[in-house]
Design a protein around this nucleic acid. Sequence first.
DNA 1: TAGTGGTCTAGACCACTAC
DNA 2: TAGTGGTCTAGACCACTAC
Lengths: 229, 229
Amino acid sequence: MRTQILALVSAGAEGDRLPPERELSAVCGVSRMTLRRALDELAAEGRIVRRQGRGTFVARPRMVRQLSMKSFTEEMRQLGRAPSSRVLDFRRLRANGLQARQLRLPVGDPIVRFTRLRLADGEPIGVETTCVAADLVPGLKEPDLDGSWYELLARRYSVHILRGQSMIEPAVLGDREGRTLETAVGSPAFRIQTSTFAASGRVIDFEVDIYRGDRYSLTADLRPEPRAH
Amino acid sequence: MRTQILALVSAGAEGDRLPPERELSAVCGVSRMTLRRALDELAAEGRIVRRQGRGTFVARPRMVRQLSMKSFTEEMRQLGRAPSSRVLDFRRLRANGLQARQLRLPVGDPIVRFTRLRLADGEPIGVETTCVAADLVPGLKEPDLDGSWYELLARRYSVHILRGQSMIEPAVLGDREGRTLETAVGSPAFRIQTSTFAASGRVIDFEVDIYRGDRYSLTADLRPEPRAH
DNA sequence: TAGTGGTCTAGACCACTAC
DNA sequence: TAGTGGTCTAGACCACTAC
């Protein structure tokens, strides 16, 4: 069945519509539920895109992103895509236990937390949630966040990030995330948690990012660790 | 429903068995298919493990692996786990178009390709497939491959890897991979393609690795790119 | 209103495990 | 043989789209 569907996908051009599920299941001789599991897999691989009420379409090929300190804004520009943001949430809070540990602050210290939807050419690519100590960014307001966060830190606050440490997990998109990213629930995704540091060693911010895996790859350059023996 | 099940998972210790699906679905007041989707999600997150014919169990917490040139063998030792391998496939081939491009060889040149299941404390963690030019590894035989591949290259063949480049994709485990890794189909996974290079710039090998994402995280240290302006 | 994908049900049967 | 998870079916109904 997968082979039959893949033939249709390969034959079609980007954006072409596949036959409706009820028709495909009849053609393949399986129930619709079973057919849908095969389509789930293809959607997870980024080969097809499903739009409720409209149909199932041949997908665009995926992007490749370098695993580096480059900002989303900068990276998308280099890929020739127009980056944009939509702030989904912006609030001033007092650090709870987890946030305090990550930012190396006492519990209860004021922090700013914001969540942004990141888009490339208007297509939702990821959701980034950032926590930062409030005293690092006095006067920060929601409208300031439509561009590069790292550039804003450098230009307005003279805060320069030297390095970061990331933890990367593969994830499967849940309900809410799937809706926000306009992607099928169950699609593969990256979950990247990053801490950034100034030259002084001070923690600057902590981010939790969810990126669509059907549209995205990461690359990394690896060097051997210096050997201790 | 998810909350009810999570309460059971949190209450239980590692290895505890949850109630059978038919019972859980009755308790939650949903059909078994619907309950299974919730369990699929928890399995994908690495919170539970399902064993056909035996039951559903509270899972072990996941490992963290540094994104680096360290070999699987070396890394597992540092994590205090016993690494092992099982060679699933070993053959001498003539490079097809894709392999030739990756290894920068003419099409038809002799290569060696092998696939190994990697285990930590006997638990399947990933499947690694390696391609290498045959003339780099004269006399290589299947039984040579039970330890570190990089160490073998260095010791027996005096081939020293200087750096690597990896492309990382989140994936969802397919049928065959799921069986090999003893994990549910639909679980999150990493798909990592790596090219390695000698100091001379020559390509050494090309690997495609699938790692379980429910047992594994990657970490990376990031430095800003040197700016061109 | 007709057509699409999204979710759910009740039940059947299979594969595997433990006895 | 009884109990477990794994797969599949036929059909219902919902949410959304395009007209």
